[in-house]
Amino acid sequence: PQEEYKKRAKKALKKGDEDTAREALKRAGLSPDQAEEFIRRFL
């Protein structure tokens, strides 16, 4: 589910792994723009 992928993305970002985070967010159904926004907000 979407929440699970978002959790995964946050874990990846904590490790500084933005590529894995983007992949997880893409799987969560976010557009690339939404994924970038999510990452920017998190960092």
Rank of each mutant, 00 (worst) to 15 (best):
K14N: 09
A24E: 15
D33G: 09
E23D: 11
D33F: 07
E3M: 07
E3T: 07
G29A: 03
A9V: 04
D17R: 06
A24H: 15
K10L: 14
L25F: 02
I39F: 03
R27Y: 09
L25I: 02
L13Y: 02
I39R: 01
E37M: 05
A28R: 01
L13W: 02
K11R: 13
K10D: 05
E4V: 06
K15V: 13
E18G: 07
K6R: 09
A12I: 03
A24W: 15
K10A: 12
R22Y: 07
K6S: 05
Q2C: 14
K6L: 15
Q34E: 14
K14E: 15
R41L: 09
A28S: 06
E3P: 07
E36R: 05
T20P: 02
R41G: 09
E23F: 02
E4Y: 11
A28D: 02
G29Y: 02
A35W: 04
D33Y: 08
L13E: 00
A28T: 04
R40D: 10
A28F: 03
A9W: 02
F38Q: 02
A9Q: 01
K7S: 10
L13T: 01
I39N: 01
A24N: 13
K15F: 10
R27C: 10
F42W: 10
R40I: 09
A12S: 06
G29C: 02
E23S: 07
Y5N: 08
F42H: 08
L13G: 01
K7H: 08
R22A: 03
K26L: 13
K11T: 12
L30V: 04
D17N: 06
L25H: 00
I39P: 00
L30C: 07
Q34V: 06
R8E: 15
P32L: 10
A12P: 01
A24Y: 15
G29H: 03
K11S: 13
K7G: 07
E3Q: 08
L13V: 03
P32E: 13
A9K: 01
S31A: 08
F38V: 04
K15D: 15
F42S: 05
D19E: 13
K15R: 13
L43E: 08
L30Q: 02
K14A: 14
L43P: 06
G16D: 04
A24F: 15
P32K: 10
K26N: 09
A21C: 04
E3A: 09
A9E: 01
E36I: 05
K10G: 06
E4H: 08
T20G: 14
A24C: 15
P32C: 09
Y5I: 06
F42M: 07
S31T: 14
R8N: 10
E23A: 08
G29V: 00
F38L: 05
D17Y: 04
P1N: 14
R22C: 06
A9N: 01
G29S: 03
K11C: 12
A24I: 15
E36G: 04
K14M: 15
E23H: 07
K14G: 09
D17T: 02
A12F: 05
A28Q: 03
P1R: 13
Q2M: 12
E4G: 06
Y5A: 14
R22S: 03
K6T: 10
K6E: 13
E23R: 08
L13P: 01
P1C: 14
L25T: 00
K7N: 13
R40T: 09
Q2T: 12
A24V: 13
F38I: 05
P1A: 14
A28M: 06
T20H: 06
K14H: 13
L43Q: 11
K6F: 15
D19R: 12
P1I: 14
R22E: 02
A35Y: 04
T20I: 07
P32H: 11
E18M: 15
R40K: 13
A28C: 05
A12G: 02
E3L: 07
K7L: 07
E18A: 12
R27S: 12
R27G: 09
F42K: 03
Y5V: 05
R41M: 11
D33L: 10
E37G: 05
A21N: 00
R8H: 11
K7E: 15
K11L: 09
K11M: 09
D19L: 11
G16L: 04
E37N: 06
D19S: 12
K15A: 14
K10Q: 12
F42A: 09
A28L: 05
A21H: 00
Q34H: 05
K14I: 14
A12V: 03
D19W: 10
E36N: 09
E4T: 05
G16H: 07
L43N: 09
E4W: 10
Q34Y: 05
K14C: 13
